[in-house]
Each structure stands twice: as structure tokens, then as C-alpha cells.
Design a protein around this nucleic acid. Structure first.
Lengths: 225, 225
DNA sequence: TCCGTTTTGTAACAATTGATACATTTCTGG
DNA sequence: CCAGAAATGTATCAATTGTTACAAAACGGA
């Protein structure tokens, strides 16, 4: 069936053949809900009691701030799941209000049924575990990066990370502007730090190539900063 | 057996009776490794190919910085698992080097066997899913909090979050110093912002009670900052 | 209640970064 | 090779926060 073809590309059913998906789904209780344009799918704060996968169409997540204005957060298109990270854990509530962008079909698998699915089909289990683990790892890394306060620290950490253990130079693959955005600082501020570090003999810059002249010095920035 | 009694309190086997744990473990392949004080358990960067649970004793995680110095990160005592968030996902490597603090026993369950365990015992599956989901949710919230740059924004967000939708005042449960640490700023800087916001008529402070006089004003800080 | 400790309010100054502007260099397509 | 665009280096000033210090207020136990 066409819809299982589509689902085979979703993060949850990845690696399974459409007929396998069909067979597994037939073993459990699930439903398909249809929404029209601008229909509300879920309300922020509602308990998450099922895995919901956008099967056709797309939805958007919106947050309502404390004074009542709405703010679009993200789009989710088929065949991606929504709020898959809030199906388990302490906080099982939708972090956003979800609204259909167009004619949309959503596959709804109650949490209990999804557990069965994972127990019966190892591929689904590993897919789901990989998905939420990857997310945790991503967040964890991002958080570690944000723990460096000053621009000097961020630059030092970035360069040492990029260079690894043996390389003595780093090839920048992005512009200063992109790097500044990554660090969450302004471009002139970043350029200033590059300039300072070069004058201090920590690094040497030639176009996109940065030579690490004083690894120990760069390191000390990460502790004594 | 004593050790299963202990394991019943671990995040992974929580909610199971010792004899249930014993029975489930008998269905799979696992091993128990013993370490003496200061023995190295795993090396940073090694692939994570098994779930490891400290069954007796305790271990510490250490990171080696770029210049070779070691830095203690955290202690893990029985009956907690180590690196349980790195068993799946893109980055399946130990983020730290792990060293035994004392005579230590570690239960080692290869990833494939752990998958079987989760498929056979729903309690273990939900325990594990809850554990890593909670961690994701925690990190996600922390990251969102860090997205507010200025202290004013952090304070406004914190107060509105604490107050919820209806309350008009917030009872501080921690000292300014603790709050400042939570925000990652210095205490005088935080006190200054409190003072400013009070002078501006946004809030009114009486001891540990903060009255929100202008919710809309606080809100605007979150956007226009 | 009284005294020592902790917490809080406040100030002055230094350090860092953002905002903005502009000249220079490098890149890119013709 | 050339011209326009993009990227980079640099400067100035404003805003924010850290640092340090000290006094007032609140707290807690004898």
C-alpha cells in the first residue's frame, strides 16, 4: 500500500519493508486521524499518550507565550513523528500546540501498543532508541559547548576539537559569519578574538588555515578562563 | 541473592523483584567483571558495546584534556549504570575514562543481549526509555534556558515559568546565590537586575516573595531582548 | 534577647561583547 | 584580467556583566 511505502522512510520504521510494516501494524491497535488545513491536532500541555506520525501532509508546532501571542516553532512533514521525545520520561506533555498546514493524515499508535511493537520488532526498537539517543547526544554536546563563556574559550575549544590529537592546523570549512552564528556571537567580536590570539602567538592565520602554535596555551584558556 | 537485591534499586531494573531479575538474566549472556582500586574500567573513546551497571563499589569518570592533564567529572556508585546514554545513537563511544574507586563489580550486558532483555521484559524497556527520555527532556529544558542571553531575560523567564498561568507571585525556594549559580551569573549581577526590575515596576520583592506586577512587561523582555 | 553568621542591597571599576561603520582583501563570473 | 560581490580586519562607542568591597538586613542558635 502506498502509505506503508511512505512510512518505510520514517525514522521509526526505517529499514523495514512496507509489507513488514503492514504485518506488524496489523498486530496492534492504532488509528489514522485526518485533519483539514488549520485544524488543531494537539494542544500544548496535553498529555502525550500515543506516538503520532505524520503520514501525509504536514503540521506546524506553535507555542503560546505568557501574554497570549503565538509563535511558530517548527514544521514537521511526512513521514516524521511528532513529540517522539515526550512519549516517555518525566514530562509526557506536548511542548507545543500542533496545527495542520494542509490536508493531513496522522498515524496514532497508543504508547502501550507502541511498546508491543518495539518488543515484537527489533528494528523498531533500535530505530526508536537510536533516534532519542542521538538527540540526547546532540543536546549534550551542544550544552557542553555552551558551557564555555567567553569567545576565547569557545574558539580554543573549537580549534582543539577540530584539530584532534595530532593535527597542527585546522582548515575552516565555513566563513567567519557562519562560525560566529555557531558560537552565538557577532562576527566582528569573533574576528577580534582571532586577531588577538594571533598577536599573542597562540595561533597563526592564513586565509582559511589556522595553525595552532601553542596548544598548551590554548588549553589553559579552557581552565583559567 | 544479595546482588539482585541491589540491582532491583538500579534505574534499569527498578520495579522488578530480585527473583524476576535473576530469571531474566538467566535467559541471556552476560558477565560480571571485578576491578581493584584505581583499575581502569574503560578508556575514553572506546566503543560502547555493552550496558555496564556498577553492582558493587563505585567508579569515577575522568576526562583527559588536550594537554594531557586529567580532570574528574563524576562519581558513579552502585547500582547505577555507566554511559547508558551512549549505548545507542550516532556516538557510541565512552565520553570519559572510567576508573574504579575501590573494589568494584560491574555487570556487563552486551548491547544485543540488552535488546533481548528489553523485548522480553516490558518493565526493563520502559525503565530504559524513561531514563533516557527524562535525560533528553532535562537537557532540552536546560538548553532552552540558556538560549536567553541577558540576565533580565533569564529572570523574566524564570519568574513566569515559576508562576505558571494564574499565580501572581513566586516564592523563592533558594538563595540569590543559588539562583545566580543556576543562571550561571554572579550574585551581585543578579541582585542588580532584581533591583532594576523592581524600580521599573515590573516586580515587587518582599523577602523571598516576588510579586509579578507587570506580566506583559516581563513577557516583552523575552522577545525584544 | 543577643551575637555571630548568612543573606541581601549597593556601589565603583574593569573586562567583555554587541552594534555599527568602513577600508581592505579575497573570491567569482565574465 | 576586470568588476562587483563577498569576506575579512579593524576601530569606536554603548551596553552588559564580572569583580571586589562593604554595609545593612535577616536569620538562627545559645
Amino acid at each position: 500500500m502506498m502509505k506503508f511505502e511512505q512510512l518505510a522512510h520514517s525514522p521509526i520504521f526505517r529499514g523495514m519493508k512496507p509489507d513488514q510494516i503492514s504485518r506488524r501494524l496489523s498486530e496492534i491497535v492504532y488509528q489514522v486521524r485526518r485533519y483539514g488545513k488549520d485544524d488543531q491536532v494537539v494542544l500544548m500541555g496535553q498529555p502525550v499518550e500515543a506516538l503520532m506520525i505524520v503520514q501525509k501532509g504536514s503540521v506546524r508546532g506553535e507555542m503560546v507565550d505568557y501574554s497570549g501571542r503565538t509563535l511558530k516553532i517548527e514544521d514537521i512533514e511526512a513521514p516524521r513523528p511528532l513529540a517522539s521525545g515526550f512519549l516517555f520520561g518525566n514530562n509526557r506533555r506536548f511542548p507545543v500546540t500542533v496545527i495542520a498546514n494542509e490536508e493531513t493524515e496522522i498515524l496514532v499508535i497508543p504508547t502501550g501498543e507502541f511498546l508491543k511493537l518495539m518488543q515484537h520488532e527489533q528494528q523498531i526498537l533500535t530505530n526508536y532508541l537510536n533516534a532519542i539517543s542521538s538527540r540526547t547526544q546532540f543536546l549534550s554536546q551542544k550544552l557542553h559547548f555552551l558551557s564555555f563563556k567567553s569567545i576565547r574559550e569557545k574558539v580554543a575549544h573549537f580549534l582543539l576539537q577540530q584539530a584532534g590529537q595530532w593535527l597542527h592546523s585546522v582548515e575552516l570549512k565555513q566563513t567567519q559569519q557562519q562560525l560566529a552564528d555557531l558560537f552565538g556571537v557577532t562576527r566582528p567580536a569573533l574576528a577580534r578574538v582571532f586577531g588577538e590570539m594571533q598577536r599573542e602567538g597562540l595561533i597563526e592565520i592564513d586565509r582559511k588555515t589556522i595553525l595552532l602554535k601553542d596548544r598548551k596555551g590554548l588549553n589553559d584558556l579552557l581552565k583559567n578562563g
